[in-house]
Amino acid sequence: MLDINPGLILWTIITFVILLFILTKTAWKPLLEALQAREQGIRDALHEAEEAKKESERMLAEHKSALSKANEETARILKEGRELAEQMKNEIVAKAHESANAMMAHAKEDIQREKETALIQLKNEVADLAINAAEKILEETLDESRQKKLVDKVLQKLPKN
């Protein structure tokens, strides 16, 4: 059983060398190349997926910050608008007050002026009447009754106030 057969050793070596040669050509080379290509493909795909994930995360963060910025902006605009409206309201109210006051003052002034002119006119009138009465008295001598009548007449002509 342990006897060495040189012919069989040679056959083994010959067979192995030919097998090695043929298999390297027909099987190992294409198989290993395909394997390597696939492994490279998987590595690339994983790398790409990683990149895509990073990119999407970055974009998400960007969008989030943009959204929060927009929210802030909205709040700011709203606040500003409210403030502006408040300010305008106050201004309008103040202006209205002012103009009302001015109108009132104007009216008072007018009344005062009318009153004064009326008083001046009344004085002139009274003076004229007094002069007219004096003239009448001087022109004709009058009896007591007539005088009375005249005085009444004059008094009647006077305005009530």
């Binding site: 342990l2 060495i4 069989l8 050793i9 056959w11 083994t12 070596i13 192995f16 060398v17």
Partner: peptide
């Protein structure tokens, strides 16, 4: 099994 023959394994061992 050819590998049950010492000459065959000797051939493989020589290689």
């Amino acid at each position: 099994s050819a590998t049950g023959n010492v000459s065959v394994t000797a051939g493989l061992a020589v290689i």
